[in-house]
């Protein structure tokens, strides 16, 4: 789990493509291979789940409307086993669907019909390394940020690229981890939604700020003692979010 995609950037990244429309699947496979990805495609969620287990993809492109098991269920069942970024291919610009997909565990979305360039940009953004958030200690080894000194302290261990509560690893997705790193690098300061959207998702002026909100909610369920009343990752009304290590 600790070994995330940015550790093998030299190889061509493996992309899982779950799409039931033969035309779209074939065309996307061709264009994504042109973009340098090793594409594993699946026409239904069951085949895609098998592919996730067998091939451990670095990225996933998931269509929401599928015959049989739908995209939402696929994302929910794949999330415990994979932290790889998931981009949803939404045919509907229905905001409801998009939020539901993000809440299920997706990292970003594109609306059909999209430009291949735009999809590549989204994929590239999600594969970037997290920022080096923490200053290196005097001894030059331990890059750790203690988020919560309670019993079983919550630690962001940047050297290992993971978050621990006590001895146990907290399972974060790649994007959740990067979001936490961004907030950690600015611990105690407020980061606006737009700033986060730009630094984590590489989205510009028209980016959908709900992406940030949903990810913050997801992150809270994993790092807060009471996600309903957050004390670590707090909302600063009208401005954005702030990480307050204790």
């Amino acid at each position: 789990m600790a070994r995330w995609c940015w550790h093998h950037e030299a190889m061509s990244p493996r992309l899982l493509l779950l799409e039931d429309d033969d035309g779209i699947r074939t065309a996307l496979r061709l264009s994504m291979e042109d973009e340098g990805y090793e594409v594993v495609d699946a026409a239904n969620a069951e085949a895609a789940l098998a592919a996730v287990r067998a091939r451990a993809p670095d990225l996933m492109l998931v269509d929401l409307m599928l015959g049989g098991m739908d995209g939402f269920s696929f994302i929910r069942s794949v999330r415990p086993n994979s932290s790889a970024p998931i981009i949803v291919l939404s045919a509907r610009s229905d905001t409801h669907d998009i939020v539901a997909a993000l809440e299920a565990g997706a990292d970003d979305y594109v609306t059909k019909p999209f430009e291949v360039k735009e999809l590549s940009a989204r994929l590239r953004a999600l594969r970037r390394r997290p920022p080096v958030a923490l200053e290196i200690d005097a001894n030059g080894s331990s890059q750790q940020l203690v988020l919560d000194r309670g019993n079983g302290p919550l630690v962001l261990d940047e050297a290992a690229g993971l978050v621990r509560r006590g001895d146990r690893q907290v399972h974060l997705t790649v994007t959740e981890y990067r979001l936490l790193c961004e907030l950690g690098a600015a611990a105690g300061r407020v980061l606006s939604r737009r700033a986060l959207l730009e630094s984590v998702w590489d989205r510009g002026y028209f980016g959908d700020e709900r992406i940030v909100d949903v990810h913050v909610r997801r992150l809270r369920t994993k790092i807060e003692n009471d996600p309903g009343a957050p004390t670590l990752l707090v909302t600063v009304r009208g401005l954005g979010y702030r990480l307050d290590p204790r």
Binding site: D21, G23, I24, T26, A27, L28, L30, S31, D34, L89, A91, K112, P113, F114, E115, V116, K117
Partner: peptide, 14 residues
């Protein structure tokens, strides 16, 4: 309409 358009756009891109 979006599905075939997506296919077309991706194919034309290739």
């Amino acid at each position: 309409l979006r599905s075939p358009l997506t296919t077309l756009k991706a194919s034309v891109e290739v």
